[in-house]
């Protein structure tokens, strides 16, 4: 009757439903594809420049960007973003650090940068979307709730199990990204210094607080932020799973939210209150890398707060509804 027994039950059900297996398969199929794409782009860049020297490549990139900046038709926000990118690249060049040094850890870092706002949340949605609703749609809720266990305990056991598998998913993403890409790029580069601590003040990149971190530490911070995003998205999906009985509908709701978030971050810079939506706050790793946030006034503490509030509110709604609701078929 203890919580451990209940969590064991939920774990068995997730495994028997093969949800986690599906996620591992998605990762195992997509990571090699991304690895190959990365490999091609490195090759193409070297061919175009006729050199494999990263300094020359980075210098060329800076020149390219400055040329684009010279064009007068560029929108103002975009111009600021490019300026900051140039400043950052210049900093790497001045300090003799190759930001793109190929290797398993660099790939894993790039992968999380790309995955944190859409790919990883979607995987978590697959995991969480029918955690509660399947019990209703399959009718097993009637057996689950007629046991000597209070409803809040039943829901807690499901949530704890979700946290468990969310953590496992983020961990497996890191392990698989490093393992698979290492086959192509090699496994070196864990100690390579990565710059962080950038601050954006009034559209200028503030490099005063910048410091170099060994890549493995940077990765831990990055995947920690990825974990936090996953937990929040998982919690919101969990609420949807309590509210919506059909897994397809729940999936639709979450997909629509995540994708519109991805679109909004591209174009919402002039709509300032959009920054309170959870979906535009998912790109947490950008704060580490020193990229300009999509909307003015956003910072790492701000995004963390917004996400925490959304997660907490979702939990409250999920518990209130699950405990109160009459089970009808």
């Amino acid at each position: 009757m203890g919580m451990l027994d209940l969590v064991q039950n939920e774990t068995i059900k997730i495994l028997r439903r093969r949800r986690f297996l599906v996620i591992l398969l998605i990762l195992a199929i997509l990571i090699p594809i991304f690895t190959y794409a990365q490999y091609r782009s490195v090759l193409t860049a070297q061919e175009q420049m006729g050199t494999s020297d990263w300094r020359a490549l980075l210098q060329q990139k800076i020149v390219d960007t400055q040329n684009r900046l010279a064009s007068s038709r560029l929108p103002e926000e975009w111009r600021e973003f490019l300026k900051i990118t140039v400043q950052q690249q210049q900093y790497y060049l001045d300090h003799d650090i190759n930001p793109m040094a190929p290797g398993a850890p660099t790939f894993a870092r790039g992968f999380m940068d790309q995955a944190i706002s859409l790919f990883l949340p979607m995987i978590i949605v697959v995991l969480a979307v029918d955690l509660v609703s399947a019990e209703f749609s399959e009718g097993t809720i009637k057996l689950l709730l007629t046991r000597p266990v209070r409803r809040w305990k039943v829901l807690t056991s499901k949530y704890v199990t979700l946290l468990l598998f969310t953590s496992l998913t983020v961990l497996m993403t890191l392990i698989l990204a490093a393992l698979i890409s290492g086959v192509v790029f090699g496994y070196a580069g864990w100690d390579m210094p990565v710059l962080t601590g950038f601050e954006i003040a009034g559209g200028e990149l503030e490099t005063a607080g910048v410091f170099a971190l060994p890549q493995w530490k940077y990765l831990l911070m990055q995947y920690g932020l990825g974990w936090f995003v996953s937990v929040v998205v998982g919690t919101i999906t969990f609420m949807v799973s309590v509210l919506v009985r059909s897994a397809a509908a729940g999936m639709g709701i979450m997909m629509a939210a995540l994708i519109s978030g991805a679109i909004l971050t591209q174009m919402a810079s002039s709509w300032e209150s959009a920054k309170y939506l959870f979906v535009v706050n998912l790109q947490l790793t950008d704060y580490l890398a020193g990229t300009l946030p999509p909307i003015k006034g956003m910072s790492l503490p701000f995004s963390l707060t917004v996400l925490t509030v959304w997660g907490a509110a979702s939990l409250v709604v999920a518990y209130a509804v699950f405990i109160k609701r009459d089970v009808t078929s």
Binding site: M1, D5, L6, N9, I12, R16, G139, L143, R147
Partner: peptide
């Protein structure tokens, strides 16, 4: 309505734990 994706025994063990 029991868990169709589990065996009969797993179903019973599930409810026994509860």
């Amino acid at each position: 309505e029991l868990y169709k994706f589990m065996t009969g025994r797993e179903n019973l063990e599930h409810f026994a734990r509860m």
